[in-house]
Design a protein around this nucleic acid. Structure first.
Lengths: 213, 213, 213, 213
DNA sequence: TATGAATGAGCATTCATTCAT
DNA sequence: AATGAATGAATGCTCATTCAT
C-alpha cells in the first residue's frame, strides 16, 4: 500500500516542496509576478494549504532567502583562509556572497526591496539569521585578535556591523540603483580597507585604494 | 492687468503648493494612503495638472524628501563645532538628522521604503543630494586632516561612505524594524567610534558614548 | 465624423447603459454570480469607470430595484379603480406588485436578501423610494376617507405601514423561504381584510376569510 | 470508574458548551467575524467535532437565536397582565422583546440579516419557534375574545400575523437601518393601536401612545 | 496650460466544511 | 466519537496615470 506512505511523504516534504516551488518561481518570474496559487500548484497542494505553512507570500520570500543566504554564507565562511590577513578574509567572504547573488540579481533585488518590510514573524527569522551571521563574523574577528591581525582594543561588534553596513549599502546600490559590479567591488575593497585601517597592526596585504572609482 | 500677474504668481507657486500639499498629506495619512487626486485637490489644481509638474507620486516623495533632508542636513552641518574632535563632529551631525526624522517616523519609514525604488529621474535627484552630502562630509574630513584630527593617509571617500552606511543601516533598522531609539543611538556612537578608531591621531578625545549635540 | 458624437452619446447614456447591463445580468445569472467586470463589459466601459457612477455592486442593485419597483408600483397605482372599495384597491395594488416580482423571483430574492444591508447612500435612495410609495398609499387612504370607505378617525400612516409590513413579510416568506404563491396570496387577502376590518364602514366587498389557508 | 462518567458528562454538556461558546463569541466579535474554529476551541473540542453536533455555522446562529428568543418571549408572555386591555397586552409583549434585543443589538442585527437565509433544517427550527409563538399569541387573542376585549368575528391568525409583521418590519428598520429606538417604539404603539382599532369593542381603554410596560 | 473622465490590471487570502485516520 | 490537516472557490475595487478636449 504505497498510497498512505506517499501521503506521509507528501506531508513530511510539504514544507520543503513549498519552499522549493517558491524559490524556483521567484527566480523564474520574479517575486511580484509569482502568484501564491502558482506556488501551491507547483508544490502540489491546495491554495489554502499554503497558509498552513506560511503566514504570507512575503513570509515565503524570507524563507527562500534564509535557505539561499545560509548556503551562500556557509560557503563564504568555509572558504576563508584561516591564515590570511583579516582584510583578505573579510573581503573574500563578502565578495563570495556578492558573486553568489550575481547569479540571480532579480531575486537579490527582491530581497533588498521586500525583506525589510515583511511581517513580524518572518522578519524575526531573517533577523535571527543575520544575528547568526554577525556572530560568525565576530568569531573571525576574535580569531584575528588572537592571531594579532586585529588590535586588541577594537570593539568587535560595531566593527562587524560597520563592515556589514558598508557591504549592504553597496549591494543595495548595485541591485536597486544599477551601480555596476566593477564599481561596487572596487568600493567594497576601499570600504573594507578603510574600515580596518589602523586596526590591523601589520597593515593591509592589499594596498588601500589600489582600485579607483 | 492684475489678472495675468495673479495667474503668474499662481503658476509660480504651483510647484510649491504641490510639494506642500504632498508633504502635509504624506505626514498626515502616509505615503501609500495619499492619493494623487487628494494632493491635486489640496494644491488646488486638476488631477492631470499634477503630472505637468511631477513625473510620478514617488517623484513627489523624492521631492518632499529633498526639501526635508536638505533642511535637516543644513542645520546639522551648521551646528558642527569646527574645533571639536572629528568623532564629535560626525556624531553631532548624524544625531541631529536622526532626531529630525524622529519628528515624523511615518514619513521617515516611507523614505526608507520607497526612495530606493523611485523612477530614474527622481532617483538621480536624490543621488545628487546624497552626493552633495558626501561632498560636504568630505570637506569636514579634509578639514580634520588639516587640523590633525584625522590621519593624512586615510581615504576620505570610503570613510564617508562607511559612516553613512553605518548610520543608514541603523536608521533602516530603527524605522522599519522598530529598533528603539536608545539602542540605535548607542550603536551609532559605537559604530562611528569604531570607524574612526585608529584614524584619529590623538585618539578618543571624547570617551565613546558621551558625545553631545 | 461620427466618432466624437458616438463618444458623447456613450457618455450621455453611460448611467443608463450601466443600469441596463446590471439589470440584465442580475436577472440572467443572479446578483452574486454577476461580476462587476461583466457589468462594465456589458455596458461598454472600463471596470474602473463603473465606480465613477456607482459606489458598489450593492449600490447598483439598489439602482436596479428602484427602476424596477418604480415601474411596478406606478402600474399598480394606475390600475387602482378609484371607485372600488378600499380593500379591493389595496389588494389590487399589492397583488399587482406581487405578480410583477413573480416574473423574476431570483431578482426579487436578491432585493429581500441584499437591499436591507447596502451602503448608507444606496439605502437612502431605497428609503426615499419607499417613502414616496407610502405617500402615494396615504393619498389613497385619504381619498377613501373622503369617499367614506374609511373611518375618519383612522391614523393613515400606521395603517399604511401595517399593510406594507404584512405584505413585506409575506413576500419575504415567499421569496426566501419558499412559501408557495397560493398560500401567500391567500394570507395577503386575509391580512389586508383583517387590517381593514372595522375601519371600513360599509364592510368588505370581499368576505373576510373567504379564502382558506 | 470516574473516567467514563466524566466523559459522558462531557458529552452531555458538549452541545451546551458549543451553544454557549457560540453565543459568547457571536456577542463579542459578531457572527461573521466568529470562526467555527474559534467556537470549537472555546467549546474545548476539535474543529471537525463541531460538525457532529451542528449542520453549519448558520445553524448555530439559529440555535443561539432559539435559546435567546425563547427566553425573551417566555418572559414577555409571563408578564402579560391577563386583565389588561388587549392593546396593552400586545404592546407589553412586543416592547419587552424589543428591549431584550436592545441589550445586544449586534446579535439582533445578525438575526435579521442571516436568519432568513439559513439552511432548510435550521430554518424549520426557527419557523417552528415562530409557529409556537404565533400559537401563544393566538391564545391571548382567543382569551381576549372570551373577555370581550376582541370582537368575535375577527380572524385571529391574520391578526397575529399582522401584528408580528408590523413589529418585525420595525425591528428590521431599527436594527438594520438604524431607526432610533424612540421612533421605533412610537411607531410600534401606533401600529398596534391601528391594527386593533375597530376590533376592540370597548375601544381604546388606554389612549394610544401611553401604554406602559 | 489645464482639466478630469476614463482606464484596467491584478491577486492574496479566508474559513466553512470534509474526511481519512 | 473525535480529530485537525487539507481544501479551493471566488472577486470587488483602487488609483496612478493618460490624453482628448
Amino acid at each position: 500500500m504505497s498510497e498512505p506512505s506517499r501521503r506521509q511523504r507528501n506531508k513530511a516534504d510539504k514544507r520543503r516542496r513549498i519552499t522549493d516551488a517558491a524559490t524556483t518561481l521567484f527566480k523564474e518570474v520574479g517575486f511580484e509576478a509569482t502568484t501564491t496559487a502558482s506556488i501551491a500548484e507547483a508544490a502540489g497542494i491546495g491554495t489554502g494549504t499554503l497558509y498552513l505553512y506560511v503566514d504570507s507570500k512575503e513570509d515565503l520570500l524570507a524563507e527562500v532567502f534564509r535557505y539561499d543566504a545560509r548556503h551562500a554564507w556557509d560557503e563564504a565562511f568555509e572558504r576563508i583562509d584561516p591564515d590570511a590577513p583579516l582584510l583578505d578574509q573579510v573581503l573574500s567572504a563578502y565578495l563570495h556572497v556578492t558573486w553568489h547573488h550575481e547569479a540571480d540579481p532579480r531575486l537579490a533585488r527582491c530581497y533588498f526591496k521586500e525583506l525589510l518590510f515583511v511581517s513580524e514573524r518572518a522578519r524575526s527569522r531573517v533577523d535571527e539569521f543575520i544575528d547568526g551571521f554577525f556572530g560568525r563574523f565576530g568569531q573571525v574577528m576574535e580569531e584575528a585578535k588572537r592571531r594579532h591581525k586585529l588590535a586588541d582594543d577594537v570593539a568587535v561588534e560595531p566593527l562587524v556591523r560597520n563592515l556589514f553596513a558598508a557591504w549592504y549599502v553597496l549591494m543595495q546600490g548595485h541591485h536597486t540603483r544599477g551601480t555596476d559590479l566593477e564599481t561596487t567591488e572596487c568600493r567594497l575593497r576601499q570600504s573594507v580597507a578603510t574600515a580596518l585601517h589602523g586596526l590591523t597592526p601589520a597593515t593591509a596585504s592589499t594596498p588601500v585604494g589600489s582600485a579607483s572609482t
